[in-house]
Design a protein around this nucleic acid. Sequence first.
DNA 1: AACAAAAGCAACCGCCTAAGG
DNA 2: CCCTTAGGCGGTTGCTTTTGT
Length: 256
Amino acid sequence: MVNTSSYGEKMPASRGFWSPEEDQKLKAYIKRYGIWNWCRMPEAAGLARSGKSCRLRWMNYLRLGIKRGNFSQEDDETILKWHELLGNRWSAIAAKLPGRTDNEIKNYWHAHLKKRSKINTSSSTTASEIVKSSEVEVNKKDSPRIQDLLLCDAPILPNMDATEGIPMSTQMPINDISSSRTDRAVEIVQHIEKNFCSSETSDQNYLSIWEQPFSFQDMCILETDPGFMVPTTTMWLQEPMYPYVYLDTSYDLWID
DNA sequence: AACAAAAGCAACCGCCTAAGG
DNA sequence: CCCTTAGGCGGTTGCTTTTGT
């Protein structure tokens, strides 16, 4: 079967669960060469997977900082509150829960919180009510824009992108985002953050999770795999996403 | 112990959007 | 503008594990 998805793979793509070997290959390849082009990377890394599949695997399981295991009470409440406000915008909700992926939150919602949400909405103060009470007029016509602005103001964490755990030389400075934000929206954001965000989600706690450096063990995985195809300079010039190289010892050196 | 049903979760699919030519 | 391509997102599927009988 030839995959003809938008990722443009030409090689036969295997499906189903990822084997530990495949995980290692992908992890090692990205650690060595960075993410330069999802659709070409599988071939270069010697993986018979679609680019889409590789991206998903990396985003949801392989990148550093992914939290596994049970959701805390605080996590539950955060999800419920933000879901009430944002709806099924799982990636946006995930941005409020460092280390949790949109997929995981989505699954957790359907498995555990959906029922609770229905009960809660009939008995408790809703997020929309909180917004109303702030005396900020949110025109229905404008609400999608307001929501986008809310998302812009989500905590910008060092790892909330495709290359979690990898220093982001290309990360957009927060000033670039705020330049397009109205004062009005800032008011709304501040109000909601004040009402919704517990002290558990302080920056300090984010850092404790996210600023963990690579372990040496991680970095040693398949440091040199004969099956890897090195992305050429041309490739990087065409699609310079997150190029980086390793130093011999223990730190990544990012190059612009 | 064996089976069925339910729950959990990883992965896939298809649509949408942004960027570039 | 229009088209193509790559990336991202949410909905859904289906396999695996757990629980109940």
